[in-house]
Amino acid sequence: MQRETHPTPTRRSLSLSVCLAALVLAGPVHWAGPARADSELLNVSYDPTRELYKDINAAFSADWKAKTGETVTVRASHGGSGSQARTVIDGIPADVVTLGIPSDIDAISRLSKKIPADWRSKLPNEGLPYTSTVVFLVRKGNPKGVKDWGDLVKPDVKVITPNPKTSAGGRWNFLAAWGYAFEKEGKNADKANAFVGDLYKNVPVLDTGARGSTVTFAQRGLGDVLPTWENEAYLVFDEFGRDKFDVVVPPTSIYAEPPVALVEANVDKKGTRRQAEAYLQFLYSDAAQAIFAKHHYRPLKRAAAKPEDLAQLPEVKLFKIEDLQGSWDDIQKKNFDNGGLFDQLSKAGR
């Protein structure tokens, strides 16, 4: 360093500036250090439950206030079930997760250990305060005459469904179609695979989430049929008008299981275990069960729901995918993991 030509000693100012930069960078970090209110819960949920948990969270806050006098705010985050699980793995401070499919909670448990592996045994009914199924939304008057899963592979029918890799709803659609064909073809897995392959050849748009697919179908006017969560189909009815769409309930469909779980590592760290456990228990209460039915989910306790809400949930012959394909680990691996059935089908179908 040529001290004679410039008066500022370069080395000293260099280190000074390093400190300065570090300070500037560190500033926002400390400043934003979470000033957590003592009872604020975060529920990380999947896409179609936005309206549901708005009601549930308000009801729980009121209930908790009445019982304990404490104020608890429940915050919600919604998105595709898989990417929501990813944010929990990467460290979002979720107290509870309410996701679209059991394998996503399994993934959190496996990859981050924040949820114990036996999470399904911790809550009643394997962590399912409510269940749902897949029905079809079609254009008014059902111009393509879609009645059952078999109609979805007709060459002139365009099906809108989300990407099963990212969306829980997309996975239920995929499994429901597979289960239908498996039963119909005398439990022949190859024929069921081929059926699902034919179905996905009729799919012109593959959105990343259930909500994206609904917008594509209802708002953008693409496709003839939208297989979707039962609750989502009725929501479209209410949001876009009953004069534009019909709901078709297929004779058989899948028993869809959107489970809930406590994120044990996070609640212990945040000291919110008491409130978070109460929140999950609240989901099994009569009050919450009635809200589920109101939003077109199938409640665990039918007695708690209003009869007019139950009347909206038609009788369908439901099958459990575990009965056909085994454990959730197997189901996830066989169908949706890298190189699984979905990958093989989209490779073959291009």
Binding site: P28, V29, A32, P93
Partner: peptide, 27 residues
């Protein structure tokens, strides 16, 4: 870098600093 599974993840968890999924990460 800052996620639970990231380079600084364990250290951040230990010191109870939330970077991503909070203001610092967005900034």
């Amino acid at each position: 870098v800052f996620g639970s599974q990231g380079l600084l993840g364990p250290w951040l968890i230990e010191h109870d600093i939330q970077i991503i999924f909070a203001l610092p990460g967005i900034v």
